[in-house]
Each structure stands twice: as C-alpha cells, then as structure tokens.
Nucleic acid binder design. Structure first.
Lengths: 138, 138
DNA sequence: CGGTATCCCTGAAGATACTG
DNA sequence: CAGTATCTTCAGGGATACCG
C-alpha cells in the first residue's frame, strides 16, 4: 500500500481498514503492542525497524487514534505507546491475519497469536522486515 | 506495503500474510472474487483499477496460488480468474478486515461483507482506489 | 535513551499506447 | 475485449546524522 489516498474513512469497509493498517509496519507494531510492548526501543528492538520509520508509524498510529502516547516519566520526559480502545478493536483483524499466515508456516515455525504479554519474542527476532527501499550496499 | 522482501514464507505469521495480501489492490480483487467476479473487465470496472496494475496484481495472485487462471473460451482465447482453495481460505481474513472497517463507517454506508455473488457492487462504485502514484494532472 | 530531520532508492500505481 | 510494455510520479522505507 503506498498511500492514504483521497477518501478519508468512508466508502468500502475493506479499503477503510487497509487505509489504517495497510502499511507494512503498522500491523507489526500493533502486534507488539498487543504483546505488551509500549516503549520506543522495545518496538525497535523487536522489529528491527529504523528509528525514523518507527517515528513515522507511531505518529500515524497516534493520529489515527489506535495508539495513545503518554508520558510515563519526567526528566527526561519519556513516553509510552499504549493501545486505545479503537486499537484494541483491531485484535480480531490481527488474529485473522496471523492465523492465515500461521497455517502456511511449517509446524515448527508456528506460534498462533496469543496476545499475552511477550508471547514469543523469539519469533520476531528472525524477522527481516519489509522491503527496505534504501540502498542495498552503501 | 512496498515490496515482497527477503523472506519468502517463513518467519512471522503476520508478515507472511501481509506479503501475500499486503498490496492495496490485492484484497480488493480477492473481495471481488468472493463476490463471484471472474473476468478481467469485471474487476476493472468494479475497482477502477488501471489495466496494467490489474494485470500485475492478477499475475501475482496466480503466482501465489490464490487465484487460478483458466480459459473459458477459445477464439479468441479468454480467461477467467477463480479462487483456489488457498484463496478461499483467506475469506476469514477479508471478513475480519471488512468488519473492522464497517464498524468505522456511518450506518448508511455499512454493508457487511456477504460473499454472496455480487453482494453489493454499488458500494464499490464510489471507491477512489489506492494512492495513485501517477501524475495528478497530466 | 528517545526520538527528529535529511537523503536517496525502490516499488506501487496511474496514464498511455500498443498488440492479438 | 484482454491484456502487455513503457514511462512517470509518489510515498514507504533504510541509512545516517543529529538533537534533548
């Protein structure tokens, strides 16, 4: 998905959803959020996402009302990103997506989405991430 | 989503799914397929997608084993695109995505995914499509 | 640590023209 | 009608450097 186009939130239900969670990382970030991850470095470590991209995605997620950004410490100020009610309502979507992917994985790779805290971080360690448009070697 | 990256089909279940259905149009095409659409021009008319993009997406879907391309007429040869078993297995995913989007739409816009033949084509008429990277006015 | 700004590459997607 | 090929633009994304 390359963009968040003309239409805001109306039209086709399917399109609506894709607009909000269509970017590669968005669902993976939400997945981590369901796993209880809340901090910037947790997401970054878990996903191997670049900080700039993570910033962008988190901003969008906050702007979309799926995550809430709130301070949990002052001096220096630190924030955590927690699922809103709307964000939590995406759980069935993520479950469905993960379940389908799961059914295509070899048995030893399987690990159905559990949504418990830190379900299986090891699974994500080996995840290479989406297509990095950046330079391949430079 | 911008690419089909390094990993083929292993790793995270969520990523696996997104690799196959992550592109903007893919899910919409499949949605139409569930609605009983099978022909090139049906998809094109329904979605307002450019023919080149439709070709690309259909090829990928066939290559991924989600659709089957088979001739239904000779002289001139014509093909139809029908869901494979694997493609049909995506139905819960599409249902979940559409349901979430549906919950965000105004009541008069709603139309829960039915998967019957030609459920509600009118709904899609007004769909503007994903971000068109193409020129805006030229 | 927790981000933000900048640079640049790549792929998705539209437009258009063309073929069988 | 059913595509294919080519060109172009745009936004996603990685890398890097920097700020508080």
């Amino acid at each position: 998905m390359s963009e968040r186009p003309v239409l805001e939130d109306r039209e086709c239900p399917l399109s609506t959803t894709v607009q909000h969670v269509g970017e590669w990382w968005t669902l993976l970030i939400l997945h981590d959020a369901f796993d209880g991850y809340t901090r910037f470095d947790q997401f970054q470590e878990s996903l191997g996402i670049s900080s700039s991209m993570l910033t962008t995605r988190l901003k969008t997620l906050v702007a979309d009302g799926l995550l809430e950004r709130r301070p949990y410490q002052a001096n220096p100020v630190r924030h955590e990103y927690v699922l809103t009610g709307l964000g939590r309502s995406l759980r069935p979507v993520i479950v469905a997506l993960a379940a389908w992917g799961n059914s295509r994985l070899a048995p030893e790779e399987r690990s159905i989405f559990t949504a418990g805290p830190a379900a299986s971080p090891a699974m994500r360690d080996r995840y290479a991430g989406p297509g990095r448009g950046g330079r391949v070697s430079g």
